[in-house]
Design a protein around this nucleic acid. Structure first.
Lengths: 231, 231
DNA sequence: AATTGTGAAATTGTTCACAGCA
DNA sequence: TGCTGTGAACAATTTCACAATT
């Protein structure tokens, strides 16, 4: 378990599941809260209780990345938080560009949580002449016509796509051409990007549809089967 | 396969996985587009190709709810769309209340996609005296002090929580007391609700953190292991 | 005594492959 | 022939259970 040994105990490469990464984000936030509450140490049991997970899940997730705890004691809150920040890559700043400053885009510019996590909006793009040149929280809105060149010039690493659905694929294609490898999409469409580009889509309607489904079929699918057949 | 037999061939109740429900939303949107493009029929192969899934996945997902296709032909686009709408519970209107009309809340009021899917914002609540009484897209902002009574009076079925993180748990508790069974939360906290209440949390930072992770560890976790250990 | 770290078992989710039908 | 529907095989993920460690 010591980090000085030269003989590795496990394979150096592993595929980490999406769910593990999502939980890492959860642990990070929980640890931040624990730190604020003055805790120095936390057990997998307590961390799991707070986030409605199982202790084994917490330990297994963390074990993929190393041995961060002390047997009999638990995990050091502040230190573990730092380790997770490093794993997630949020121990640094990211240059983000926002494309589309309509309703959702405007909300995102004002959303302080992004800044707090190290995601800094450096450029804003829109195609509306009335918006171009205007100021949003200290950032001039650029003409989307200059997207590719500006993205490159300003060393943007992540783009947030907040344009209408019909324009989203074109914007995504142009980001790809500008060398962007990570995008967060708020348009309710399934964008196509090359394999080496990481794309996440935030689909708010989908979440509401999930709620709707859960309400209509209170936990089980008995009624769905019946209804769908008779429909 | 016929729905007239009195002896069911499979158990009438089944637990449907979250991923299947999410894909149902995807199929629904894809079918809407196919319909607009004039298709009458679609095969699992084509549907899968468009949404980057596998044909077997599409067929398996749909088979949980019934037999909607025709062997040799495929699925009837418009009809299947209707069936999925019914399964998801979006073949009706839902009364939604928005709680918190800050940056994100304002964006949600203006977000047309919700309306289009049958989710109608009927009430808006805030605790800011300057906002109370003001008009947002035809809806008067109510005082959050009246939350419980107004939720009941207006037959709200789903609440959307868009208040600051520190206020979110209290709002959720009050929604529960008002009998709300479905909530969509935009505050970056893990809210605690009773088992019979369905809660979804839309966490935008989490998605950015996922992108960050993917960028830092290009697909594999080799570097994470090394970095986390030496850190 | 308490709690981690982790193989092994259990469970859940996905893909295969083919019978059955249009 | 083409394509669905589905049990069986396979793969991934979660949970269990316990040795190891403080």
């Amino acid at each position: 378990m010591s980090s000085h040994t030269t003989t590795p105990k496990k394979p150096r490469t592993r595929r980490i599941s999406e769910s593990t990464i999502r939980r890492l984000s959860i642990y990070y936030r929980a640890l931040a809260r624990l730190e604020a509450e003055g805790y120095h140490t936390v057990s997998s049991k307590e961390l799991a209780r707070r986030e409605r997970l199982t202790p084994a899940q917490v330990r297994k997730d963390l074990s993929f990345f190393g041995s961060f705890g002390t047997r009999g004691l638990g995990y050091p809150v502040s230190e573990l938080r730092g380790k997770i920040a490093r794993i997630l890559g949020i121990d640094r700043m990211w240059n983000v560009a926002l494309i589309g400053v309509g309703n959702i885009g405007s909300a995102l510019v004002a959303y302080k949580e992004f800044q707090r996590q190290g995601f800094h909006i450096r450029r804003i793009f829109d195609n509306d002449q009335r918006k171009i040149g205007s100021n949003h929280k200290g950032i001039m809105v650029s003409d989307i016509a200059d997207l590719e060149s500006e993205l490159k010039a300003s060393k943007i690493e992540i783009t947030v796509i907040a344009v209408p659905a019909h324009a989203a694929q074109d914007v995504a294609d142009r980001c790809v051409r500008a060398g962007i490898k990570a995008m967060l999409n708020f348009a309710p469409v399934n964008l196509k990007v090359p394999d080496d580009v990481c794309l996440r889509t935030e689909n708010m309607s989908m979440e509401l549809e999930y709620l709707s489904f859960s309400r209509v079929n209170q936990g089980s699918v008995e009624t769905v089967l019946l209804d769908a057949e008779k429909a």
